[in-house]
Design a protein around this nucleic acid. Structure first.
Lengths: 149, 149
DNA sequence: TTAAGTGCAAAATCTTTGCAAATGT
DNA sequence: ACATTTGCAAAGATTTTGCACTTAA
């Protein structure tokens, strides 16, 4: 049993059901955000697709996970850090979406730079996504290149 | 006839068909990006929904328009500026998505700040969206507030 | 004339909704 | 025991595909 996962559910007064435990432990085990279809594949037929939709939307509403849209508009999900609450997400870091492996990395180290908005434009949430090739895919490409020489 | 619209199509060797002319002149007439459903409403039954999908995807592929995803993952489209080509989009300005009127503004004046990526993360395209309340909605809210006092 | 583009119908996806049965507390 | 939550079935919405017809060049 994953104690931390149970704590998360406790904290938000959510029942500890099997679909929720599965989803949370998958999210916790990953360093990158994961898309709904990918989650669906991992979960297999243990969890109904509809339940997955509802689970993710509950988690998002409670501030347990946050959503990042990749290049094609597909939603990817990652655990929020402890500072997120239902009302205020602390999600102000840069995301990196690899166009090769499709993984979405939370670059927690890169804070979103402060911007001055035009007058009367009141910002609320900021989304900064960089699309490109990630570390792993860059290295993989380099190795392929080696082989040819 | 809108000469500039014709020129755009010429430049990309696209035939000047009625759906394309309609879509381009709508995009040119707006200061904000427009969603596919909204376009559909404006066009009415003059243009088939399927044709609209294909038109937008052609334009995007040619670098005539660029896509911005709003908070809900809905695609919004805006004309690219002249410096965009099929291969390299010059779309590196900040977008502002009003969560009240849903409009997506291209804040051309705000360049995306330069970021240093972690090693072996190769950036290609950058997407910077600020969600919040736009000028018009801010003012509208202020007026409503006036009335009550 | 003829390649490109459109429109319709129909398939394939994706997402939401309603409700009875199951489950956690 | 009871409010939540799940799973199924079915509705709704969105997006894609195939193909015959039309149109711009």
């Amino acid at each position: 049993m994953d104690k931390e996962v149970l704590e998360i559910l406790n904290k938000h007064q959510l029942k500890k059901t099997s679909p929720r435990l599965s989803v949370l432990s998958i999210l916790r085990s990953r360093e990158t955000a994961i898309s709904q279809p990918e989650l669906e594949t991992i979960l297999g037929k243990d969890v109904d697709r509809v339940t997955l939709y509802r689970t993710l939307s509950t988690f998002e509403g409670k501030g347990i996970i946050h959503k990042v849209l990749d290049m094609h508009g597909t939603a990817n999900y990652a655990l929020c850090d402890a500072s997120c609450t239902e009302h205020k997400h602390n999600d102000e870091h840069v995301h990196f979406n690899c166009t090769s492996c499709l993984n979405v990395y939370c670059l927690e180290a890169l804070q979103i730079p402060h911007l001055v908005m035009p007058p009367d434009f009141i910002p609320h949430t900021i989304n900064f996504i960089v699309y490109g090739i990630c570390e792993k895919c860059t290295k993989k490409a380099a190795e392929e290149h080696q082989k040819l020489h």
